[in-house]
Design a protein around this nucleic acid. Sequence first.
DNA 1: GTGCCACTTCAAGTCAACTTGAGGTCAAGG
DNA 2: CCTTGACCTCAAGTTGACTTGAAGTGGCAC
Lengths: 141, 141
Amino acid sequence: MDIAEVARRSGMPASTLRFYEEKGLIRSIGRSGLRRLFDADVLERLSLIALGRAAGLSLEEIARMFAPEGQPQIDRALLAAKADELDDSIRKLTAMRDGLRHAAACSAPSHMECPKFRRLVGLAARDVKRAHRKKSAAKLV
Amino acid sequence: MDIAEVARRSGMPASTLRFYEEKGLIRSIGRSGLRRLFDADVLERLSLIALGRAAGLSLEEIARMFAPEGQPQIDRALLAAKADELDDSIRKLTAMRDGLRHAAACSAPSHMECPKFRRLVGLAARDVKRAHRKKSAAKLV
DNA sequence: GTGCCACTTCAAGTCAACTTGAGGTCAAGG
DNA sequence: CCTTGACCTCAAGTTGACTTGAAGTGGCAC
């Protein structure tokens, strides 16, 4: 397959495919003149990348999941850790969604006068501080 | 409160507070010489901003939720629409989390040999294509 | 009253993940 | 054979959300 076909079948622009190859996320199997040739399995790999992106992983994290080819347990630990992170995000998003849903329906003149909404806001505030502590701690390393 | 106290109490760096003020997301209530003075209610506002960010809203979207002061129903419709978007993200993240969790535990030698995992991957692929269609359509406007 | 240092402004830098543009190459159809 | 246009490379641009740096100001403890 040439790059145009991969683009068509994966839904990603050719520029992205070249970019991913440069980053080592995918590989072309050869050339025809200048033109890259891809094996069909690149599509699976691209789906995997898309999945990771959709779940909020960075390209670098995704690359790490693919790469080592020698430490399967590190790989599995990473997957599990990522799953935990996702759980966290899901909890946050769910709280936010409920808050929005409520705010859209709530009759309080200003959302801030609604106790439900205020509780939610307080929750988020705690999270930010936690995140900042984490970041500062990370800098010390 | 001066900016340092707001920073301390909100957990955000002063530079971020100045940045948010410049963007119109928060307001200082006056100055003492050059120094900004903030009302205590800015903390509530910052929590709200943090909540929005954590839920994946852009600063511009957050600003729109605050701003109009005249179209309460547009505001509510926007909130409801955002809640729906969040529902979508939550579904995706949940699928991803389950996939990761499974992959971390699954005994198949390579994740791609596991039918559960492959189904998940296919799901993500469809999503990318949908996103690209949406983007292309948006460009035509 | 005076010196320090937290505050100020404004411009520029950073980071991730791509996209865009200029200038060049070559496979294939006519 | 020759043109065409899809593909190539490499550098630079873009966007969002901030951060950093240099140069300046002024509140307040002494």
